[in-house]
Design a binder for these strands. Structure first.
Length: 471
RNA sequence: GGUGACAUAGCCAAGCGGUAAGGCAAAGGUCUGCAAAACCUUCAUUCCCCGGUUCAAAUCCGGGUGUCACCUCCA
């Protein structure tokens, strides 16, 4: 497996610290609101990565945090905890809010066939670990106390900017509106490890610590949770590209300062989903959630296919036109799978080259677009239907588009219709057949239109009329 | 202002020095009373622009232009 490593910006062969086992960490959601489909693009592509690694035969140990405390709207004095803000808005306690949106997040993931990581840990469940890590950083001289908070001292590092070639002089603090300088910081890039600031008195969740009653900074949780659950050597750290700086940069700073050796070798960043103007999270108007897609009549897996057609390292522009495009492609694809005969035994030998082709596509920096091409080419090939069905199921271990299940559903759609309705439809079809016999095309077409209005699609075949209900 | 990425047909998109995959849409055909569905066929002499390296460049180098992102909300 070759992946583009953000640390080097090059495609590198993935060599895990422990042969055959991949330790993979994912920055989880801050559960203060519903995830939008841009957030979910990252989790979706990380899911594909995990499954592609398993397909290659790796064992994958994966952990993810749930940020339910400490993620401020800003790191400076004016910062407000996102969870607290959300709780106020919805008249819930912070923990109720977290539980609600954690469930909503995983419900969305399930609809997109995103596998839940083996280990999912809420930040509030690991406060002791954070305190231990912060204490160690203070002991080692990588942290200092000021104004009631504990800060990480970035000047103690020889190379703080691991992603790209930035330097402190050029770092413009406060370019963004609402961001203010924190006078307690010795260096512009220092960041908070533990807050006790009185400004946050209304913070609901606080814990005792050696530095007073307070709560952890945002960056510390990922380091602590990752090290605790996956060990001192991490193979792949995933997340959206916006997290590269400062979140991941800070994670590396504190983790390596704490461990005293290199921590994570490969950084896997998913680029953003944009709309015409810019990234989705900045869009105005209705928030693009999975539920919204469903309300508009899209199968969430259509969005999965849409993402798979593109590459994780490229910005992807979302539009409903493009989604319609994917919906059409999804429908055609499943119809094709549904048409495959079910009897016969797959020919494992003949299947092998196709599996290799599919795997090679994924091994090439997770080129899902090429992997889909392998699927299309395979369906076009002269393999037996049984072998094709076998390969569709095999590929779907990674693609997770429910290709066989959707095909099943298409085949089984008729019996799902209530008997009464079915009789009614059959009667109309019979009436249309009479009209057609009498060459009364106007009447026949009127019946077809009526059925179409009720989402009944007719299919005239030499063997007779077939029908199914769409949507 | 600094940093980074990207630019390929109507749209999405692959391509990683050897002569432009795939999907959607569209057009023509088979089938049909007409449709729909299905199947067959067609669809980039050219890859943002200008130079350079090379026998050979969408691919490498230099310079432009444009788009997007990051620089303490974000996935």
């Amino acid at each position: 497996m070759q992946l583009t490593n953000t640390l080097t910006m090059k495609k590198e062969e993935l060599v895990p610290h422990q042969p055959g086992v991949i330790k993979m960490y994912t920055c989880g959601p801050t559960v203060y609101s519903y995830a939008h489909i841009g957030n979910l693009r990252s989790y979706l592509m990380e899911d594909v990565l995990e499954k592609a690694l398993r397909y290659e035969g790796f064992q994958v140990d994966r952990a993810m945090n749930i940020t339910d405390v400490g993620h401020l709207t800003s790191d400076a004095d004016t910062g407000e905890d996102k969870m607290l803000k959300g709780a106020r808005r919805e008249h819930k306690s912070v923990l109720e809010l977290a539980a609600f949106y954690t469930n909503a997040f995983f419900a969305d993931c399930e609809k997109l066939n995103i596998r839940r990581p083996d280990t999912v840990v809420p930040a509030t469940g690991c406060i002791g670990d954070f305190i231990q890590l912060v204490s160690a950083l203070l002991d080692k001289g990588f942290a200092y106390q000021a104004g009631g908070n504990v800060y990480f001292d970035t000047s103690k590092l020889t190379d703080y900017y691991v992603f790209g070639n930035q330097n402190a002089e050029d770092l413009a603090v406060g370019v963004r509106e609402g961001v203010e300088l924190d006078g307690n910081k010795r260096n512009k890039t220092d960041f908070v490890l533990w807050f006790t600031k009185s400004k946050f008195e209304d913070q609901e969740l606080k814990w005792e610590s050696p530095w007073g009653l307070g709560y952890p900074g945002w960056h510390i949780e990922c380091s602590a949770i990752s090290i605790k659950n996956l060990g001192e050597y991490l193979d792949i750290h995933c997340g959206g590209i916006d997290n590269a700086f400062p979140h991941h940069t800070n994670e590396i700073a504190q983790s390596e300062a704490y461990l005293g050796h290199p921590w994570c070798k490969y950084w896997f960043h998913v680029l953003h989903l944009n709309d015409g103007g810019g990234k989705i999270s900045k869009s105005k108007g209705a928030k693009l959630t999975v539920s919204l897609l469903e309300e508009k009549g899209y199968n969430p897996l259509v969005y999965r296919l849409f993402c798979l057609q593109s590459h994780y390292r490229k910005p992807l522009v979302f539009s409903f036109d493009s989604l319609d495009n994917a919906a059409s492609a999804y429908h055609k694809l499943t119809a094709r799978v549904a048409a495959l005969a079910k009897d016969g035994e797959p020919d494992q030998e003949a299947a092998k080259p196709w599996q290799e082709k599919f795997q090679a596509s994924l091994a090439n920096d997770l080129n899902t677009s090429l992997a889909l091409t392998a699927l299309y080419d395979m369906l076009k090939s002269d393999l037996s239907d049984a072998t094709k069905r076998f390969l569709v199921g095999d590929f779907d271990r990674v693609l997770s588009l429910d290709l066989l299940q959707a095909a099943e559903k298409q085949n089984a759609q008729e019996p799902q219709v209530p008997e009464e309705l079915a009789r009614e439809i059959e009667a109309l079809i019979e009436k249309r057949a009479q009209a057609r016999k009498a060459k009364d095309w106007a009447a026949a077409d009127a019946i077809r239109d009526e059925l179409a209005a009720r989402h009944v699609v007719l299919k005239d075949t030499p063997a007779g009329v077939q029908w199914h209900i769409e949507g």
